[in-house]
Structure formats: structure tokens, C-alpha cells
Amino acid sequence: MRIGYLIDLHKGGYEQPMPTPQDAHDTMEAMIEEGIVAERAGFHSLQVPDRHGRTECYFPGPEQILTILARETDRVAIGTFTHIHTLLHPMKAAEQYAVIDNLSQGRLYTTLSRGFHPGYWQQFGVPQDHMLGRFQEAIKIWQLAFAGERFDFDGKYWQVQQGLLAPQPHQEGGWPIWGGGNAVPAAIRRSADYGECWTCDPFPLMKEVWEQQVGTYRERAEELGKTPYIVLMRDGWVADTFEDAAAQFGTHFVEEMRFYFRQGIFTHHPDFQSESDITPEAAAPHTIMGSPQQCIEQLERYHEEFGVDYFTLRFRMPTGPSMEAAREQIQRFGEEVVQPIHRKYPAPDHPSIPAACRW
């Protein structure tokens, strides 16, 4: 079992005023610093999302900050959670990620998804029909690009003429691909086809639904001769007591949950049928929050009862806590939760983890 940290590329309230140049600079520096602190604190990986066209987004897309982190870190795995594989030409994306993989000396992985936010496609003038076909063609192009020779691809949505990915990835055959979809059974099953693992977002879980989802993924992975690997994202906060953690973090988590509730992401959950149902108390069971021992027990429960192999933790939402508080939290959570767990459990030996990061 290993634990990574997600750097949220949002800061500030949704639809906030346009950041000033100084605010943009300072916030970008602070986000980079989060990654540096997380490596020092013992986190196994750094992950960043793919976001665009919003005033609260300071790094549009994951490629730029990952390029910087490839130089600023030495040991952690670095990757996307996720890369929306329908927004730009897959060869352009492959070129940027190949640079990151080489700069980091083989520490890159990418979680891929087709995306769900219409505003992102609108930002780039991408047609919003046939997204699955666009996504599947993009994966095929990456597979051809990783072979290291020129190729042509005449698809319905993407075309490549005498394409060549140069430089080639540092990792022979390409960096690990993590599967994205986690709501629709077909998407979960499909993640085993193109990915080395299956990832799940930080939304409320129902055990019976989870078992169905995991079963769908595991069955398909085993059909393909792959060893299943489960990645779960959670939000959380460590403090002296659960009450202290909830007071510092709970309201921010609730605001984030309400935003995604309005997008229809988890309206199926019986405990959350309206925005008023989303309170710090109701949301608490779906976070990693409390004293160090409580956080360790919660992570181990997900590992033992839900079969989770890898965790991605996030401590900062767009509305807060502050960047300063987040850095302090990264350090404390790393020392008091992450490091004890990493000492207890063996290093991962799975193709979803870059070979350079199997520690």
C-alpha cells in the first residue's frame, strides 16, 4: 500500500475575479512548493488534474507543472489524475509527456479519461459528440507512437501522417497508463483494456456498488492476464482530534461536494439527495480525517475491506484551507500517517508503478 498526494490546481472560489499577475505568480510557486514538500514528507507520488477555462484554475492542464516537478523532485512518481484524452491532438500530448518522462528519468504515469465537463471541450472548440470514439482513437495513437517508428493513422477523429514521437519515452514501451472511468460499468471494464490499474474519484462510496464496480474491473483485468490494481482518491486532514480536523477542513470539503453534486456526479447516493444533505458530519465517513491513528485506521480499512492498493490524498480545495495550511498539513500527514504506513507495507511491484518508483 502506498500513498500519493494530489496538488489541486484550483485556488479561490468558483467564478472568482480574474487573478492578478502577482497572485498568479505566487500561487503557481506555492503549488510547485506543495510537490517539493510532499516528496520530502515521504509521499510516494504527486498527481495533478486537467482543468481549463476557469478563473480559479492557475495551471491550465497538467503538462506545465509536471515538467517543472520533473526537475524539482528526485524520487516520487509524477502523474496526471487525470489527463483528458479528448481535448488536444494525442501526438501533441505524447510529445509533452515524453519530455516529462525523460526529464524525470522514468517517473511518469498518466491517468486517462474521456472527460465530463462541457466547458473544457468548448474552450478548445472540440465537438462534443462521439467522445468515446475520440478517446479510443487517441489511445491507439499513443500505442503506435510508443513503438518508436514513423506511422500513419487515418481515423474518424484523429489523423497522423508520418508521425514520430521523438524523443521516445524514458520508460521502454511507454509510461504506465492508469484507467479513468469510475461511474459507468462499461467505462470501468474498459479501463482494464487500456490501463494497468483502475482509479476511483473521492466521492461517497456505497459498499454494494463498490463491490460491483471492482468486480467488473477485476474480471476484465484477469481475462486479459493483468494483475488488478485499485487506486482510490480521498480528501482528508490530520489533526490532534477528529473535531479539530473537521473544523479546519470539513466546510471546504462540503463546498466541493456540493459543486460536484450540482454536476450530477453522485446524486444516486441515498444519503445525498439534496445539497442540504451534504454536511461535515454526513461527509466525514467518506474522508480520511481525524487524529493520526484514526487516519491510519481509515486507510487500512479501505485497504482491507475495499481492496484498495494505492491512495491519492488531497488536503486543499479551491476554497481552502490556505496554501500555508496545506503545506503544514502535507508535512504533518507525511510524517505521522504516510511514513508509518509505508514502513509497514511492502514496496509495490506492479506495472502501474514506474519501475524507478517501486519503493
Rank of each mutant, 00 (worst) to 15 (best):
residue 105 Q to W: 00
residue 129 D to S: 13
residue 148 G to R: 10
residue 131 M to Q: 15
residue 150 R to N: 12
residue 137 E to Q: 09
residue 149 E to S: 14
residue 166 A to M: 12
residue 120 Y to V: 02
residue 105 Q to G: 01
residue 109 Y to N: 05
residue 105 Q to P: 01
residue 159 Q to L: 00
residue 159 Q to E: 06
residue 129 D to E: 14
residue 157 Y to G: 02
residue 132 L to D: 14
residue 137 E to A: 10
residue 177 I to E: 00
residue 176 P to V: 06
residue 114 R to T: 09
residue 172 E to I: 08
residue 153 F to Q: 08
residue 104 S to W: 02
residue 167 P to A: 05
residue 180 G to E: 06
residue 173 G to S: 04
residue 155 G to T: 02
residue 178 W to C: 02
residue 163 G to Y: 04
residue 164 L to I: 12
residue 159 Q to S: 08
residue 169 P to T: 04
residue 108 L to I: 01
residue 103 L to N: 03
residue 167 P to D: 08
residue 110 T to W: 00
residue 149 E to L: 06
residue 114 R to V: 05
residue 138 A to I: 04
residue 99 V to F: 09
residue 108 L to H: 02
residue 106 G to W: 00
residue 175 W to S: 05
residue 101 D to G: 04
residue 167 P to H: 04
residue 130 H to M: 09
residue 152 D to K: 11
residue 183 A to L: 15
residue 146 F to S: 06
residue 145 A to L: 08
residue 134 R to F: 07
residue 170 H to K: 12
residue 153 F to V: 05
residue 182 N to R: 05
residue 136 Q to E: 15
residue 160 V to C: 08
residue 154 D to H: 12
residue 183 A to Y: 10
residue 136 Q to S: 13
residue 139 I to T: 06
residue 115 G to H: 09
residue 159 Q to G: 00
residue 120 Y to S: 10
residue 148 G to E: 13
residue 154 D to C: 04
residue 131 M to C: 11
residue 125 G to W: 06
residue 168 Q to G: 15
residue 127 P to V: 06
